[in-house]
Amino acid sequence: MIGLDTIDKYTMKARVFPAAIALAPALALAVAYVSWDSFSLSDAYAAIASIVLLVVFADISRRHGKRLEKQLLKEWGGLPSTHMFRHADSRFDTPTKKRYLTFISQKMGEDPPSEEDEVNDLAACDAFYNRCVNWLRENTSDKERFSLLLEENINYGFRRNLLGLKGSALIVSLTVVLIAIGSLLFGMPIDASSSMSTQLALLVGFAGIHSAYFMMYVTDDAVSEAAELYARQLILSCEKHIASSPAR
């Protein structure tokens, strides 16, 4: 569970924002039910319940995102950053890749695999590349120095966690539509300051847009794109490490 003392930039953008987006129709419905002219105890309960629900969903977004990540890694065949280190991968030119691998290999005290090694035992080579990725992760924790990497990591976490909440978000939208229709049919008060039919149209329309967004834009491909951008920036962080290393 997220505590107030653990809120940072990553937590806010990659966990809380996806939760808020997934819950947006429900939060809008809660706002519609609150009487802002005469704020009562029941209105306070509704506001508190909304905040609690947001905190809970932020925690769920992380757990569902992590679970989803395991499935995606199986589909991708491993980390994009691992693939980028392979000799057969063309997303980095050969001299640049060789320079990066030579540098990290020296730091780890290992020899980088050759093209022939990849042909003979790709799994062993990928294990080495994974260690290179882990070394980079452990040595890029300075948020100011590696600010671009942090932004790409946040973007990836946001898309991954949002995709993890996709099913829940669609259920939220459907529930809001049903409640809105029920409010009209059975005379449940929504907000005395505006007509019931206007509130219904706004809530149903918003829920429809919300559902369309999740169906069209919250996809595996969106997460894959963010993962590749993060992986590329992680590998490019070698430039700063090499530049700051003493000349030999």
Rank of each mutant, 00 (worst) to 15 (best):
91 R>L: 08
48 I>C: 10
133 V>D: 02
46 A>H: 07
118 E>K: 05
125 C>Q: 04
98 K>Q: 13
38 S>W: 13
154 I>R: 02
219 T>C: 07
73 L>P: 01
53 L>C: 10
122 L>M: 13
220 D>C: 02
150 L>P: 01
68 L>V: 04
28 A>D: 14
166 K>C: 09
131 R>Y: 06
245 S>T: 14
248 R>A: 13
184 L>Q: 12
187 G>L: 12
59 D>P: 01
152 E>T: 15
141 S>C: 07
230 Y>H: 13
164 G>Q: 03
51 I>S: 11
43 D>C: 11
134 N>M: 08
220 D>I: 05
180 A>F: 09
102 T>Y: 02
129 Y>N: 00
100 Y>P: 00
228 E>K: 12
135 W>A: 06
126 D>C: 09
112 P>F: 05
57 F>V: 01
113 P>A: 11
8 D>F: 09
32 A>N: 07
138 E>Y: 06
147 S>Q: 10
233 Q>G: 00
162 L>M: 14
67 R>D: 14
140 T>K: 06
177 V>K: 02
31 V>C: 12
58 A>V: 10
221 D>G: 02
178 L>F: 15
167 G>A: 08
1 M>C: 06
176 V>Y: 09
146 F>Y: 15
227 A>E: 04
129 Y>K: 01
113 P>T: 07
158 F>H: 15
81 S>Q: 13
35 S>C: 13
149 L>R: 04
156 Y>M: 05
221 D>L: 12
244 S>P: 03
220 D>H: 11
25 P>A: 08
57 F>E: 03
47 A>C: 11
60 I>P: 00
162 L>Q: 04
90 S>E: 11
18 P>H: 04
129 Y>P: 00
155 N>V: 03
39 F>R: 10
130 N>T: 11
175 T>G: 15
73 L>C: 02
211 S>A: 15
46 A>R: 15
151 E>D: 15
160 R>A: 04
12 M>F: 15
194 S>V: 10
91 R>M: 07
78 G>K: 05
233 Q>F: 03
207 A>C: 08
206 F>G: 09
51 I>Q: 06
40 S>H: 08
74 K>N: 03
248 R>W: 11
234 L>W: 07
120 N>I: 05
132 C>R: 00
104 I>G: 03
2 I>L: 15
166 K>W: 06
208 G>V: 13
170 L>R: 05
63 R>V: 11
64 H>M: 12
112 P>R: 00
193 S>L: 06
122 L>T: 08
168 S>V: 14
21 I>N: 00
192 A>C: 07
144 E>V: 09
245 S>D: 13
191 D>C: 09
153 N>I: 02
11 T>D: 02
140 T>H: 08
